[in-house]
């Protein structure tokens, strides 16, 4: 059996006296999207920073394709950076307002020194997220929230990653465009064989996009399993409360 693309093993992360993550283990296997759900403060975003190797665990380890990540291992980190790309919650903050869209989308290509024609690749990923290649010469402020999130997704796609780690990718958007962005993520996952790691407090979206679901509560995994069974037959009282708190969207 091949090693999972990403794996957190008994990860503990403390901030002073707070244990944001208290022994969390999560496996992200290729082609099987994972949803991480929980309330604010449950440790979702902290876990995500661990998976993106933006932060080191206090204890435990994060493995990329079986190899434990260490700060000093530049080669492994570089492979991880090219292969695991982030999408953030608020595209107003995740796109540099002083960079043209073309430069924004090309940044991972430049930083990772990806060979090939960057302009061509930028046009390609912009088309993949449903934007005109002409937008490359404009500034982020000239776009709506939904379009900006498409730009952020295009940037993440640029270095041809196999995993997209998305932190609440639609919760900062207008309700009217949320569906479109969720559709886009679903289509990209299917067409490009992307594995999604989706952090969300919105169980309905996880239900649509993720095969497996992990429920976090106070920095611990309280429940995990196939999304369908977690949603249909929650074993834990906490998951049931979480589900009850979600207004059902028609058609989801």
């Amino acid at each position: 059996m091949t090693a999972p693309v990403l794996e957190a093993v008994d990860v503990v992360r403390t901030f002073g006296a707070t244990r944001a993550l208290d022994g969390v283990s999560v496996r992200v296997e290729a082609g099987r999207s994972v949803g991480i759900v929980g309330e604010s403060g449950s440790g979702k975003s902290t876990l995500l920073r661990q998976l993106l190797a933006l932060d080191s665990p206090t204890a435990g380890e994060v493995r990329y394709r079986g190899e434990p990540l260490a700060r000093r291992d530049r080669g492994l980190l570089r492979r991880l950076r090219a292969d695991v790309q982030p999408v953030f919650q608020d595209p107003r903050s995740s796109l540099d307002p002083r960079m043209r869209v073309g430069a924004v989308v090309a940044e991972p290509l430049r930083s990772l020194k990806v060979p090939g024609d960057h302009r061509e690749r930028v046009a390609e990923v912009l088309a993949a997220v449903g934007l005109d290649p002409d937008v490359a010469s404009r500034y982020p402020a000239q776009f709506s929230g939904g379009q900006r999130q498409r730009i952020a997704i295009a940037r993440a796609l640029a270095p041809r990653p196999s995993v997209l780690v998305a932190d609440e990718p639609v919760s900062a958007l207008d309700v009217s465009v949320r569906g479109q962005v969720v559709d886009l993520l679903q289509r990209l996952a299917a067409e490009q064989g992307l594995t999604l790691v989706l952090v969300s407090h919105d169980i309905a979206i996880v239900g649509r996009l993720c095969e497996r679901t992990v429920v976090l509560h106070h920095g611990r995994v309280v429940e995990e399993g196939p999304t369908a069974s977690v949603l249909a037959d929650p074993q834990e009282a906490y998951t049931r409360r979480l589900l009850a708190a979600v207004p059902q969207l028609p058609g989801v």
């Binding site: 993106l52 190797a53 933006l54 980190l77 570089r78 950076r81 090219a82 695991v84 790309q85 982030p86 953030f88 919650q89 608020d90 903050s93 995740s94 796109l95 540099d96 307002p97 002083r98 960079m99 924004v104 940044e107 991972p108 430049r110 930083s111 990772l112 952020a152 940037r155 270095p159």
Partner: peptide
């Protein structure tokens, strides 16, 4: 603190790249 700097780090942009591409222009 902006997410675009975090995004840059997550895409392999180093300290100097961050300073020159994001911090100085902003």
């Amino acid at each position: 603190r902006e997410d675009y700097v975090t995004a840059a780090h997550a895409s392999g942009t180093g300290w100097w790249g961050t300073v020159l591409r994001h911090v100085v222009p902003n």
